[in-house]
Amino acid sequence: MKDNTDNSVINLEKVTMKYEKNESPALENVSLRVDPGEFVFIVGDSGSGKSTLIKLLLREEKPTSGRITVNGINVGKLRHSKVSKYRRNIGVVFQDFRLLEDRNVYENVAFAQRVISTPGRDIKRNVPSVLSLVGLGHKYKSKPNNLSGGEQQRVALARALVNNPRLLLADEPTGNLDPKNTWEVMNLLEEINDAGTTVVVVTHNREIVNAMRKRVITMKKGVIVSDQRKGGYIDEDY
């Protein structure tokens, strides 16, 4: 199942994804390679296939054809029983944060460690450490609904990072944030990337894409229309 000769973090080879047989594909013949340590923006209109790409990488969906390899694992061939272990090497952040509302900040982050049976003493060491990293060490007792949007996203980031994933997927991480919080979160993502984690950010935010000068992959109607090193946001009428 694991391909040790491929050292890419993400590798898509001619991937097509159709949700229904007779519908047009959400992704069509997409090939893409992301190497370790890269910071990649994926941009595009609604319906361009960005979310489908994230779903495929998280193995929420299986490709109709083609091959997807993440951390050397052939995702399309992954059995249901192996999916949980596969996801533990991927950190994920969503636009709507997806925190467990009835648990405090500490418990939300600790939960990611508990599900992989991390010993209690390690959880007690790791969680405060990662909360400090995202600047929320002092709010560990707060419930998500008592935090601002930016703080909630930082909790989600802490949860995504606590298991030291090789890859961090962020699906519109700043979609619900004001400009100040947007930049705080993006700076954090850049720090995380500098520390060696591969970061893939799906976004609509033209300003941050243009300012950060990272690799930018532009998608339209299920295909990649542009892949630029140190690129910018391409106009919608491309």
Binding site: Y86, R87, R88, L100, A112, V115
Partner: peptide, 16 residues
């Protein structure tokens, strides 16, 4: 169900 979905996405096994 949303809570279950979150657990699954961060790598919880069906058993957990």
């Amino acid at each position: 169900s949303e809570e279950i979905g979150i657990m699954k996405l961060i790598g919880a096994t069906d058993f957990v």
